[in-house]
């Protein structure tokens, strides 16, 4: 499968237009011509009246990277759900938590956002603060009673970031993965 490079034109963006049209058609449930045309028209009106800031994607979707990311994500989601559910119902006190700072390597706000979003749904953490200027992410880790688990969490975040960048990052974002990072 080839990976076409998508350049978005100014004004009406193709990807949000197609996404909104898809949502509209899915809500109606049938792929009739009328639904698609109405969806396109409505999406265009919405995008023109409520313009969104350009997030500067300009990246390249790598099918293999995306597959690896989604696979890990689903496995992590199931694992973390069971872990949190068990912590909730088991007898006794809750584990000691930590608020951990992790310095990310990518500079793109989109990649940092995607990393933070995915991180909230995978084992043990929710993001409470994201400082884009210093590329630092602060997360609450539910079960982190010692320094070893804090370090393990940092490594886990950096691995997740690497998977996000390999899935949708630009070549220059990939190059940034090589620079040393970790503790903020």
């Amino acid at each position: 499968m080839s990976t076409p490079r998508r350049r978005l034109p100014a004004g009406l963006h193709v990807v949000p237009l197609l996404w909104l049209t898809t949502v509209w058609v899915l809500l109606w449930g049938t792929w009739s011509l009328g639904n698609v045309l109405n969806g396109l028209l409505l999406s265009a009106v919405v995008l023109l009246l409520l313009p969104l800031p350009d997030v500067g994607f300009g990246g390249r979707v790598s099918p293999r990277g995306l597959l690896a990311f989604v696979g890990h994500f689903v496995a992590d989601l199931i694992l973390s759900s069971v872990q949190v559910a068990w912590q909730a119902v088991r007898p006794g006190e809750q584990d000691i938590s930590s608020v951990v700072a992790v310095r990310l390597r990518s500079e793109s706000e989109l990649l940092m956002t995607m990393t933070a979003e995915a991180l909230t749904l995978v084992p043990g953490s929710i993001v409470i603060e994201l400082d884009a200027r210093s590329r630092t992410l602060y997360a609450h880790v539910l079960s982190a009673p010692d320094d070893a688990s804090v370090e393990a969490f940092r490594r886990q975040v950096l691995d997740l970031e690497a998977r996000v960048v390999r899935a949708v990052g630009r070549p220059e974002d990939r190059a940034l993965l090589l620079r040393p990072s970790g503790a903020a």
Binding site: S81, Q94, I126
Partner: peptide, 30 residues
């Protein structure tokens, strides 16, 4: 079952941050 465990977590966990763990992961998968 997961949604039930999530709501038990929201009740039992000690602070807002911990409760949000219960309100995201098991709840979403549920």
């Amino acid at each position: 079952m997961l949604a039930l465990a999530a709501s038990v977590g929201v009740l039992r966990f000690v602070d807002v941050l911990s409760r949000m763990h219960a309100a995201t992961k098991p709840q979403v998968l549920g």
